[in-house]
């Protein structure tokens, strides 16, 4: 049976009740893993508190940080500072320069492109080529699709269709997330998957975008963050306690 992950819940963290309700709702809808967008300055204790709330609801918490750097240097500084503190790193690509750097950096997990920035910034062939040789995936949030109406939604669908076509052509993995700020935008995984048909993502690929791909990212990052990780393909299998004393 498939396990589903919603890597992007972004409720207001000040409203503890709402966060709790959203986590419980996600669990009821069939997600086993939820990613909570956390502020970059959050302490370990607070992450543990959110983890406990998720544990009570029967879902696993993924700590996630959303970076929106203005330039390349700021992105590199943020990645150096934050990569080892969060399980998922997402970059909002607000300029071409940031998009190119984020796509080729192996520390970036997800790339998001605000539809409002189209046609100045969008997931084009150059970023897709860089991302396909690195590890970044294209993240598509569903909330704008549910909240926008009329011409704004038509435009969004057109941008998404174009980005998805580029991602498919260059084999860049796609991740679907709710991007939900409140309960109204939470749906079952199958319902999110069915929305994929609006921008030419077939059901099998859409289901992978909600399960296989995010789970693979989580597994890879957890391995990397483990104290036993040395480098890609190299890990500590046994430690000799006595070697320090000798």
């Amino acid at each position: 049976m498939r396990r589903f992950a919603d890597l992007h819940l972004k409720p207001s963290l000040e409203d503890l009740g709402q966060v709790r309700r959203m986590i419980i709702k996600s669990a009821e809808l069939g997600f086993q893993i939820v990613g909570l967008s956390l502020p970059s300055k959050i302490g370990i204790g607070e992450v543990g508190r959110w983890g406990k709330i998720c544990g009570d609801a029967g879902v696993e918490l993924i700590s996630r940080v959303d970076l929106a750097p203005r330039g390349r240097r700021e992105l590199l500084n943020d990645l150096r500072r934050l990569r080892r503190r969060f399980e998922i790193v997402n970059v909002y690509c607000t300029s071409k320069m940031v998009a190119r750097q984020a796509a080729k950096d192996r520390r970036v997990d997800l790339l998001s492109f605000p539809a409002a920035k189209f046609p100045k910034v969008f997931f084009d062939r150059a970023e897709a080529e860089l991302a396909s040789s690195a590890l970044a995936c294209l993240e598509i949030d569903m909330q704008p699709l549910l909240s926008l109406r009329g011409f704004a939604r038509i435009r969004l669908l057109s941008v998404l269709r174009r980005e998805v076509a580029v991602a498919k052509r260059l084999k860049v993995p796609i991740v679907f997330s709710s991007g939900a700020t409140d309960m109204r935008f939470l749906r079952k995984p199958q319902d999110f998957a069915s929305l994929g048909m609006l921008f030419d993502v077939g059901l099998p690929l859409a289901l992978d975008a909600l399960s296989e791909t995010p789970l693979r990212i989580v597994k890879r990052n957890r391995q990397k963050l483990s104290p036993d990780y040395v480098a890609s393909g190299v890990r500590v299998v046994r430690r000799r306690d006595c070697c320090l004393n000798e």
Partner: peptide, 23 residues
Amino acid sequence: LPMVRASTASLTEVNEKPAVIHV
């Protein structure tokens, strides 16, 4: 069926009342 599921999932209100429809 895929069109109906997508349409159902896209709803955020029913008759101007905030609502979510789950299949």
